[in-house]
Design a protein around this nucleic acid. Structure first.
Lengths: 110, 110
DNA sequence: TATATTTATCGTAATATTGCAATATTATAT
DNA sequence: ATATAATATTGCAATATTACGATAAATATA
C-alpha cells in the first residue's frame, strides 16, 4: 500500500497528473516563472535566483525535465535550460477545455 | 529538513503550486473528469466510478476541496460534489499566459 | 428507537518528496 | 596534466502522500 495505482487510470489522466504534479511545488513554479521572465534559455543563474541550495535546485530541475516541462542543453561547463514548448499547449487546452465546459452548464449545479 | 519552504516564494507561486499539486494525482484528475462528464453536481456515485476504496476516494475528495477545485453540499445522507468554478479560470489564464509568452519568443531559444 | 445507508475519520504501513552536506562528474582554461 | 567552475548524484533525515481496514458520525426510513 502507498503506491499510486497508475495502471487503473487512463493515459490522459496520468499525463495530466504527471505534468500537474511537476508544477505542484512553488520552487518549480518559480523556475518556470524565471525562465519565462528572462525570455531565453538560461545557463547558470537559476541557482542564484532561488532560496534553496544547489543540490535541491538541481533536483527540482530534474523533475521538471522528467515531466517534459523544460529541456536542458549542455553548453560547455554550463547547462542551458529552456521551457519545452510541446507540453504547455496540452496544459493550456486541458484547462481551456475545462473552463469552456464550466461555462456551458451553470444550470444543473447547486 | 524535508518541509517545503513556502514562505520563500510568492503568494501567486504558492497558489499555483497548491492547485497543481491537487491535480497531481490521476485519481483526482479522474474525479474532475467525472464531475465534468456528468455535467452536474453528483451525489454518491463517485466512489463507484473509481478503482479505489471508499476511504481513499474520500481523502482525494477532501484534497480537491481543500485546494478549492471542488465544493461539496450535504444533501440528506449523500453529499453533492461540484466543480468549484472560481479557481479554474485562474488556472486557465495562468496556462494561457504561458502559452502566449512561449509563442512570442522562439528566437532566443536553443 | 432500531436499522440501513452514506460519508468521514482514525490508525497504520508502504512509499514518495523535500532539503542539504558531501562528493562526484563534466568541461574549460592554464 | 592540473586547477577551476558548473552541475549532478549520493546518502540521509524529516516530512508528506497514498492506500485501506476498522470505526465513527450523520441522516433517512421502517
Amino acid at each position: 500500500m502507498g503506491a499510486t495505482k497508475t495502471d487503473q487510470f487512463t493515459d490522459k489522466q496520468n499525463e495530466i497528473a504527471v505534468l500537474a504534479k511537476a508544477l505542484g511545488h512553488p520552487a518549480r513554479v518559480a523556475i518556470i516563472d524565471y525562465l519565462l521572465k528572462v525570455d531565453a534559455c538560461i545557463c547558470g543563474d537559476i541557482v542564484n535566483e532561488l532560496p534553496l541550495a544547489q543540490p535541491t535546485v538541481s533536483q527540482h530541475l530534474k523533475e521538471l525535465k522528467n515531466a517534459g516541462l523544460i529541456k536542458g542543453n549542455i553548453e560547455g561547463t554550463a547547462i542551458c535550460y529552456c521551457i519545452d514548448e510541446k507540453v504547455w499547449s496540452k496544459l493550456q487546452s486541458y484547462f481551456t477545455g475545462i473552463a469552456l465546459k464550466i461555462e456551458k452548464k451553470k444550470a444543473n449545479c447547486c
